[in-house]
């Protein structure tokens, strides 16, 4: 852990195989992100973690979750330019789906919402698409509300890689891309999903919900009601062994496959 790169003028150490986002989070530096989850291989689809690379006139931008950390990189992240980009990307996600926070059980625990308020997003700005996405309430214990899906594929990844069930997959393309369920009926009730599945835990928004526990924790006392996502994400980040015990390698297992 001797090599470093620069993030907003500070030296960030990294381990071989880490990406810029992983190294930054392990070192206690937050870069906003949405589709990245510390336990899964970086995906690079939401683009919220985009950073600027290189100084002077010769700069480029890239998603930091998939950008391999390299000694000597100069990264700009917490700048008005990058945060404005992130705000717009979050606005695009709000405009794309049907996100009605006041009636959403995930409110207060939702990463999209938390990211929006942390970045100072006041409106979707763009015209809303208001897509027609019927909910799937077929399963006795689990509700699927596709209206809120941001297509991060975390459930797809968790269900295949961890649960080994592949309950979820993506179909369509472009603006019609959508989540599908692994059953001839297309209904969740006809899959082998279980409440204990990893796929139940990873949705950053309110698509995959356990039934009959609605509002068990009151609004105002939820995860991001306590601390903004920028602080919470650092708590969740894997740290170097010295910081977080024997299992915190700083690099997820899945990333090294």
């Amino acid at each position: 852990m001797s090599e470093t790169f620069q993030l907003d003028g500070e030296d960030i150490p990294f381990a071989p195989g880490q990406t810029v986002l992983q190294a930054a989070l392990s070192a206690g530096h937050y870069i906003p992100h949405l589709c990245y989850h510390p336990e899964f291989k970086p995906h690079g689809s939401c683009k919220v973690c985009t950073v600027k690379i290189g100084g002077g006139n010769n700069t480029r931008t890239a998603a930091s979750c998939t950008l391999p950390a390299q000694a000597g990189l100069e990264i700009e992240s917490d700048t008005e330019e990058m945060n404005a980009l992130r705000r717009t990307l979050v606005q695009m996600l709000f405009a794309e789906g049907n996100h009605f926070c006041p009636s959403c059980e995930k409110s207060g625990n939702c990463e999209l919402q938390a990211l929006g308020s942390d970045l100072g997003v006041m409106t979707a700005g763009f015209r809303h698409f208001y897509p027609d996405r019927p909910v799937d309430a077929s399963h006795p214990d689990i509700l699927l509300d596709f209206n809120r899906c941001i297509l991060c594929e975390l459930c797809v990844r968790a269900s295949c890689e961890v649960d080994e069930k592949c309950v979820f997959s993506l179909s369509g393309r472009g603006i019609t891309k959508h989540l599908v369920v692994n059953a001839t009926s297309g209904k969740l009730a006809d899959t082998d999903i279980a409440l204990t599945d990893k796929a139940m835990q990873v949705c950053p928004v309110g698509v995959i919900l356990k039934k009959r526990v609605g509002f068990a924790v009151p609004i105002g006392q939820r995860r991001y009601d306590q601390r903004p996502i920028s602080a919470q994400a650092l708590d969740d980040a894997p740290r170097p062994p010295s910081a977080s015990g024997p299992n915190g390698s700083g690099v997820c297992q899945a990333c090294e496959e």
Binding site: G44, S45, C46, K47, V48, L89, M92, L93, A95, E96, F126, R127, F129, I150, L151, G172, R173, G174, I175, T176, K177
Partner: peptide, 21 residues
């Protein structure tokens, strides 16, 4: 472009649809 966007990343999936509109 809106028709052919693969939909993987947010900016292209949503942005090409917005440009078309």
């Amino acid at each position: 472009f809106a028709h052919e966007s693969c939909g993987f990343c947010t900016p292209c999936r949503v942005g090409t649809a917005m440009l078309k509109a």
